[in-house]
Every structure is written in C-alpha cells, then in structure tokens.
Simulated scan of single mutants.
Amino acid sequence: MVLGSLSLCMHGACVVFPAASFKPDLTLQAVQDEKCTSLYGVPTMFIDMLNHPDLNNYNLSTLYTGLMGGSPCPIEVMKDVITKMNMTEVIVGYGLTETSPVTFSSYRDSPIEKRVSTVGLLGSHVEAKVINENGDIVRTGVSGELCTRGYTTMLCYWGDPDKTAEVISQSRWFRTGDIAVIDDEGYCKIVGRIKDVIIRGGENVYPTEIEQILYQHPKVKNVQVVGVPDKRLGEEICACIELKSGVTSTADEIIQYCRQQLARFKVPKYVEFVDHYPLTVSGKVMKFKIREDMVQKLGLQHIHPY
C-alpha cells in the first residue's frame, strides 16, 4: 500500500484506491507500487495521466488491461493508453445511469481499430436500434438516435411519470439521446449527443468529429467543442483548448490546422485557450457549463439562436 491509497482484497483479487479523489501522480504511483494489472477511469483521467510530466518515470509494465467509460474517448487518447501505458488490452464500455451498468462494450481480443474507435458490441440479453427523426430504424452505417432495451433499463424516474414517458416507450425502448452508428459487424460508434449538435446555417455539425481532429494536433492536450449563438447562422463553432505543458499556440494556428482537415462549415470560428474544464464529481466534462462560460466570455448573451 502506498501513502494515501487503500487496498481491498477479495477472492484473491485486490482493488486499489490511490486517493480519496483522483490524482494522476498518486494513481501512477499506486500502479507502480502495487503492480496493478488493470486500470479504470473516464477519458479525462487518462488524459491527465498521459500528460503527467513524469509519466515515463513510472514503471507501468504490469498493466495490460482496464476499462474506460463515462464519456466518449478520443481515438488518439486510446492509442496513447495502449502504447504509452502498456494497456494493450484496454476496453471501452458504454452505458447511462438509466441503463446501468453498460449496454455495449469491447473485448480484450477485439481488433485494436474497433477498440479505439467504437464502444464495442451489444451485451447479452440487451437489444439496440438506431432511429431517425421519424422513429424509423435506419440502415447499418447510418447515424441516428441510439435506443436500447433490456434488463439494464431502469423502471422509471422516481415520482416523475411524465419524464419517464419522454425517454421510455410503452414497449420499453429507452431513448439514449446519443447519436450513434452501428456497422455491419455490430460495433457501435457514438457520434455525439443530440443536445450537443451544432446547427450552423442549417448544417448539422457534430462536436465529436472536430474534437477527434484537434486531438491529433501535437500541441493539444484536451479539447471541447461547443455551439454558441450567432446572429446570421444561428450557431457558430467554438473550440475550447487545453494545451500541453510548455507549449504555446494561437487561435489562427488552430483554425488553419482545422481548414486543412475539415470541411469549411466545420471549422471553428472561435478558439479559446483554457487551463481546465468544469467537471462533475466523477470527472466528466460539463459541456453545458463550458457553453455558458463561452457565451459570457465572447459577449454573446444577447443573441438567441433560431
């Protein structure tokens, strides 16, 4: 046991709690000292560990697997977890509080390209479908709202039948609010959240696509893309970027990079550099709060998107 960590052993397996709340250095230290083989967390936690200045000084050779979930994981982050943290068999799980614990997950022997770019395959005794705006099931390879049904689905929101009826149909299909694509092999890719979709001049822009591109920029540690109000187009794109330690950049540099990688209408109009993001207690990024902060910072409070 390391200072500040707690180990619980059950049935021959030990669970290590490095600290009362997440600290990248204490987590890396615990992995090294306790010779951990598996590591769990949300993407933000892995991003912080990957960007820790002393990452290469820790011995992570005992790691080989783990689980990442809670929010979509950038492809570049998954690749770095595999190569830089020795987690060659890391998997991703997908679920919501309303469909706990998971409905999709990859497997340790799933192809690497599927493990880094999808949330895996549907679990046993669970059904899934992707529907369009009319509620019709779309073909494989076509995006739409992901719906699931099965033993993982909650019974109801306590004391709120109206809210329950909004998300659970009479036939028990749960509307996740996530936009997804399921391929011919059954692997599911989360494209974004319906409420996060940016409607710019009538074009639907998915923040996840822009984020995946910006994660490939050598100076970018983390990025969150949100929509902000615009008088002419309804909404414009704002990229909030956390840079890697010791580097500098400009909005123009980021915009020029995006112009080389993205369609014109997907290029951010605004680029803001931040030191951190508002997080929930479990480490998930609160996009709605980022949007509120950017609206205030950019002086767009008086504009109401159509």
Rank of each mutant, 00 (worst) to 15 (best):
G4V: 07
K231E: 15
N134H: 15
P74K: 00
P18W: 05
V16Y: 06
V181E: 05
V226I: 13
Q32V: 05
I254K: 02
T62F: 05
Q212E: 15
T140W: 02
P53V: 03
L8T: 13
L155T: 11
E236A: 13
G192Q: 09
N204R: 12
L155Q: 11
S38C: 08
D25R: 13
Q32K: 05
N86I: 11
V116N: 01
I91W: 02
R149T: 04
C36W: 03
N56S: 15
R172E: 09
L28D: 05
K269N: 12
T248D: 12
I213T: 14
M49C: 11
F104G: 02
K297H: 04
K244T: 06
V228A: 04
H276M: 12
I179Y: 00
V267S: 00
Y64L: 05
M10E: 14
F46I: 02
Y257M: 08
A251G: 15
P278W: 03
L279E: 06
L300P: 10
G144D: 03
F104P: 02
S38A: 12
Y306T: 13
V281G: 01
D80Y: 09
P53Y: 08
N51T: 04
Q212C: 00
L121Y: 01
M1N: 07
T88S: 11
V16L: 08
V119D: 03
C36D: 11
F17Y: 15
N132E: 14
L121Q: 10
I182T: 03
Q32F: 00
C156T: 12
Y40T: 11
N57C: 12
G4Q: 09
S143Q: 13
T88V: 11
E253T: 13
I82E: 10
V205E: 00
I91M: 14
K84W: 05
E211W: 03
V295R: 03
N59Q: 06
F273K: 11
M45D: 02
V42L: 00
Q32R: 04
T118R: 02
G144V: 04
V116G: 01
V31I: 15
K269T: 14
E211D: 04
A165S: 14
Q32Y: 01
L26M: 14
K163I: 07
T140K: 09
G246K: 10
S38M: 11
E209S: 07
D184T: 11
Q212F: 01
S38Q: 10
Q212S: 06
K163S: 13
